[in-house]
């Protein structure tokens, strides 16, 4: 039977930027065994030589012309912002480094 420990779930939650309560970490890790067993069935099949499908329709080469169209106004762009200043989105201090 597959399983994910509480710490495994905590690592995944950090990667997914979700701060979970201890109770949630524990309950999620206890549910994951069953869920992983269910999804791990994909590994029961012999998939040698099978090509993966990422797009359900065999479409390719879809492009748009390089043409400028009107943008939103800055008021529209910022209309949902939790905080703004100087026509910019105001966010709390950023600790990590950019790529």
């Amino acid at each position: 039977m597959s399983s994910l420990s509480r710490d495994d779930v905590a690592k995944l939650a950090a990667l997914a930027r979700i701060e979970m309560s201890e109770e949630e970490l524990v309950s999620l890790s206890s549910q994951f065994g069953v869920i992983l067993d269910a999804v791990a069935r994909v590994q029961e099949v012999n998939l040698d030589g099978v090509i993966a499908t990422s797009h359900p329709q065999p479409i390719q080469n879809v492009f748009r012309e390089d043409q400028v169209r009107p943008s939103l106004t800055p008021e529209q762009a910022l209309s949902g912002a939790p905080a703004q200043e100087e026509q910019r989105f105001r966010v709390p201090q950023i600790l990590g480094e950019a790529e």
């Binding site: 930027r17 939790p82 966010v91 201090q93």
Partner: peptide, 18 residues
């Protein structure tokens, strides 16, 4: 950051913690 709910934006909070 750009829309929707924002929780925990108190003094000293970071973008990450929010």
């Amino acid at each position: 950051m750009r829309y929707g709910l924002r929780v925990g934006d108190s003094d000293g909070a970071s973008a990450e913690s929010v």
